[in-house]
Amino acid sequence: MKKFELSETALQAEQLKDSLRDPAAGGFVSFEGWVRNENEGRTVQQLEYEAYPAMAEKEGQRIVAEAIERFSLTEALCVHRVGSLEIGDMAVWVGASSPHRGEAFDACRYIIDQIKVSVPIWKKEHYTDGDSGWVNCERCAEHGHEHSGHHAHGPGTAAKQ
């Protein structure tokens, strides 16, 4: 079973949850990430997610498989949207089922945190003032011009919010 998928269409939480049902599971926890109307003080109208599909699936699969092993889950899955999204749309869904609840809670948190740090997916925000920008890229780029060589952004810090 695939443990990480990209989707060009709206995510269906109920269907995704049903795919994790298992007689051995005593608990299920899910996390939904929604498109918010504000980022760093700017009003967001709409946004686009772009992925590098082969690497996103490979990295996502690795993260979820690692979580299943680490938290002894029954099953887990993460699905991430690509394409144009509106405010309130679901951008990402993470679900974990396990014999007991604690592991499912912990695994959801672990999976979403890891996805944000290392899966090659990018977000371009369109603001109400007509401007737009790639999140985590534009401000870095400006700093890069101002003090080239002194701006140390490692891959691990790239997606921190």
């Binding site: 990430g33 997610y49 992925a51 590098y52 690497m55 996103a56 991430h80 951008a91 990402v92 979403i112 996805i115 944000k116 740090v117 290392s118 899966v119 090659p120 997916i121 990018w122 977000k123 790639w134 999140v135 985590n136 890229c137 870095c140 952004h153 891959p155 790239a158 997606a159």
Partner: peptide, 10 residues
């Protein structure tokens, strides 16, 4: 070869 800019999934 692909160069990966800072990611912003989730």
């Amino acid at each position: 070869v692909v160069f990966i800019p800072p990611v912003a999934g989730g």
